[in-house]
Design a protein around this nucleic acid. Structure first.
Lengths: 211, 211
DNA sequence: GGGGAAATACAGCATTTGTGGTATTTTAAC
DNA sequence: GTTAAAATACCACAAATGCTGTATTTCCCC
């Protein structure tokens, strides 16, 4: 259920009213764009936004109450046809990464010139993902895996089985060693990963791409 | 061991000699750039490239013998300070994804205008990741997770704490509920995720991006 | 206003886990 | 050829976990 005229319908979620007003005026005043819906918080957007069928939503991250990232997580499934662009001052890897995972299709920094912002909205509407070259580098860095594993081959092997929830006896049988040995390996793994439970080990295994 | 003058040293790995010659002339003829090394295959590059300490390598994917993707996998560890840009006609998700995992820092399509190519080389040299908005969309699509979580908000909250290795009592205290309730929630989480251990739950949480 | 999740709470029990040790053998490195 | 790291093996015990139940309250949807 998308409004299908020539106009790109844009909504804004932003708590700084001066910014959102200025932004809204610029967008709404540009040929080919409409911006009739501005929300001060995710709570408000959550209630009202899905009914307005926007093409593109500009979303701040730092908001009172629910963050923009959590907001997208909840909104995106309700409106899969709508593209979300983060428009924020946050530039840390965490924010970028989590926003994209949450469902954002673009990531822009607030100091972007209005002309470029409008271009970016056009791009996302056309199926692209506008972001600066610097942001893109941070994104693709997450594909890279530089730091070498602190674990030995055997330990990595055991960590994989740990991740599958196998108990000591099963692991022992599978590797043809005693379960005592498995316990020793696991102690060493925990030591090296600086954890003290299986759950943490599994978490670290995935976060650090050890498996 | 990087050559540290004002010039960006570019190498090209490309089997179509007309393309590589033209490209080389354009780059080498531009102020601030040098392009003295062109290779027709990865095998050749593998032997000679690491000795020339280039800043940026333009790499084709479709090559006779070793592909550009396999080439980067072997070359990048030998020259971590060098940035690789894929310059190719391939636009499929596989090629893009695998190139970036292999270690590429940029991804451009061969029909890019020379001026933009030069800009992209500058960008990657400055620590960015040049790619078109359309390519970027494909990249970030790999972060997205369409299938909705089967878990309730509360369950997700508890799953996060489970991932951190918190025990029942700690989780209970943190959420101001009894540890009995925590156990019930966890039973339901395991049921919904079709697992029967904490480790499997954590694994599934990460693989299905539930946390 | 009735049905169904979701969230809450409680109890018992066998199994598994985490952690404190000690100790031998093999492999790799210098 | 000595040293270090890795892989192997064993013991014991307190704590945590997984499983099988039952049960109430709240809230949302039809």
């Amino acid at each position: 259920m998308k409004i299908t005229d020539e106009i790109i319908h844009v909504a804004i979620v932003e708590d700084d009213e001066e910014i959102s007003r200025t932004l809204g005026l610029i967008i709404d005043g540009t040929k080919g764009f409409a911006c009739k819906h501005i929300y001060n918080s995710c709570e408000e957007a959550l209630k009202l936004l899905p009914e307005t069928f926007p093409d593109v939503v500009l979303m701040d991250i730092h908001l009172p109450g629910i963050t923009g990232i959590e907001g997208i997580k909840k909104l995106k499934p309700k409106m899969p046809g709508t593209d979300f662009i983060m428009l924020t001052i946050q530039q840390d890897d965490e924010s970028i990464f989590e926003s994209l995972v949450a469902g954002a299709s673009g990531y822009l920094i607030k100091d972007i010139p209005p002309t470029e912002l409008l271009n970016s909205i056009r791009e996302v509407y056309a199926g692209g993902s506008p972001m600066s070259s610097a942001i893109a580098r941070k994104v693709i860095s997450s594909f890279h895996n530089n730091d070498p594993s602190p674990l030995s081959d055997r330990e990595t092997e055991i960590l994989k089985l740990l991740c599958d929830g196998k108990n000591y006896r099963v692991i022992a049988d599978q590797l043809f060693i005693s379960s005592h040995t498995v316990r020793t390996h696991i102690k060493n793994i925990y030591e090296k990963l600086q954890v003290n439970s299986r759950a943490e080990a599994v978490q670290k295994a995935f976060k650090n791409k050890l498996v």
